[in-house]
C-alpha cells in the first residue's frame, strides 16, 4: 500500500492543489475527518473551516475552505471547494470586512432565501476569522 494519498483541491475556477500527502484533515459537516491512504470510499459535505495537510509527520500547509464537498477514494481525496484561501495569505482585515458585509446583507435580506444565503456567508466569514485567529494566536 502506498504511504501517501493524492490530495486534490479544486475550486470552480481552477485546480488549486494536487499533491501527494501523508494525511489530510478535512472539516466535514458532521465533524473533522482525517484521510490516510486506503480510506474507505466516502462522500461528505464540507463545512467552512481549515484543511490541514500533513507531510513528514507535521502539518505542512493549512488552507481555508468556505464549504464544499469532499470525495474520498482509497488512493485519492478530492475536495471541491466553493472558495479556498491558503491560511498564510488570509487577511484579518478582509475577514472582518466580510463579516460586516454578511451581517449587513442578513439585516437587509428581502426574503428567506436571501437571508439563508447571507447566513451562510456570515458563517463562512466567521469561520475564516476564527481560523486566522487560531493560526496567529
Amino acid at each position: 500500500m502506498a504511504d501517501t494519498v493524492e490530495f486534490e483541491l479544486v475550486s470552480p475556477e481552477r485546480l488549486l492543489l494536487s499533491v501527494p500527502v501523508e494525511m489530510v484533515v478535512v472539516p466535514g459537516s458532521e465533524g473533522d475527518f482525517g484521510i490516510l491512504p486506503g480510506h474507505a470510499p466516502m462522500i461528505s459535505t464540507v463545512r467552512p473551516g481549515v484543511i490541514s495537510i500533513w507531510r513528514d509527520g507535521a502539518v505542512d500547509r493549512r488552507v481555508f475552505v468556505a464549504g464544499g464537498v469532499a470525495e474520498v477514494q482509497p488512493e485519492r481525496c478530492t475536495v471541491l471547494a466553493e472558495e479556498a484561501v491558503p491560511l498564510e495569505d488570509a487577511d484579518e482585515e478582509k475577514a472582518d470586512r466580510r463579516i460586516a458585509e454578511a451581517r449587513d446583507a442578513l439585516e437587509h435580506a428581502a426574503d428567506e432565501a436571501a437571508a439563508g444565503e447571507a447566513r451562510k456567508r456570515l458563517a463562512a466569514a466567521e469561520a475564516l476569522r476564527a481560523a486566522i485567529a487560531s493560526a496567529r494566536g
Binding site: 466535514g28 459537516s29 458532521e30 475527518f33 474507505a40 470510499p41 466516502m42 462522500i43 461528505s44 459535505t45 464537498v69 470525495e71
Partner: peptide
Amino acid sequence: YEFEPEEGEI
C-alpha cells in the same frame, strides 16, 4: 461510497 450526511442531504 459511504455518505456523510445522508445521500439526500448531499
